[in-house]
């Protein structure tokens, strides 16, 4: 289930990019992020998206893996928008839940 690992990692990566933006950071955490924080979040987000690609490719090969990753980043980004627009305060809880569920399913 490399798609699962790819989506989970992509979700966390996307959430980093999302809270790196002042507007969404305020909605989720309440405060304005410092420039260093924003840069750190963006770097982390990039690494997580790269890890997401690696997970997909290691599970399904380059061809299928790239397609899975391409779909996964769009799907996770769209889910992110819904969450951040309607229930921004739930972002941390949602991320924890996704990591937990993903980890369990992968272990099984």
């Amino acid at each position: 289930m490399s798609e699962l690992a790819a989506i989970c990692l992509a979700w966390v990566g996307m959430s980093c990019f999302c809270v790196a933006m002042t507007r969404h950071h305020r909605a989720v955490f309440g405060g304005t992020p410092a420039r260093r924080t924003r840069l750190l979040l963006r770097v982390t987000g990039t690494m997580l998206l790269a890890l997401s690609l690696a997970a997909a490719v290691s599970g399904a090969g380059w061809a299928f893996g790239s397609v899975q990753w391409g779909c996964a980043i769009s799907v996770s980004a769209l889910a992110m928008v819904l969450l951040v627009s309607y229930r921004p305060r739930w972002l941390l809880r949602a991320t924890a839940a996704i990591l937990l569920a993903g980890g369990l399913l992968l272990a099984v």
């Binding site: 289930m1 798609e3 699962l4 299928f64 397609v67 899975q68 779909c71 996964a72 769009s74 799907v75 769209l78």
Partner: peptide, 17 residues
């Protein structure tokens, strides 16, 4: 036609989008 269940569902979702 190459798509397994996961990718097929993502195509469907993204198609709806």
């Amino acid at each position: 036609r190459f798509a397994d269940v996961g990718v097929r569902w993502m195509y469907f979702l993204l198609g709806l989008v």
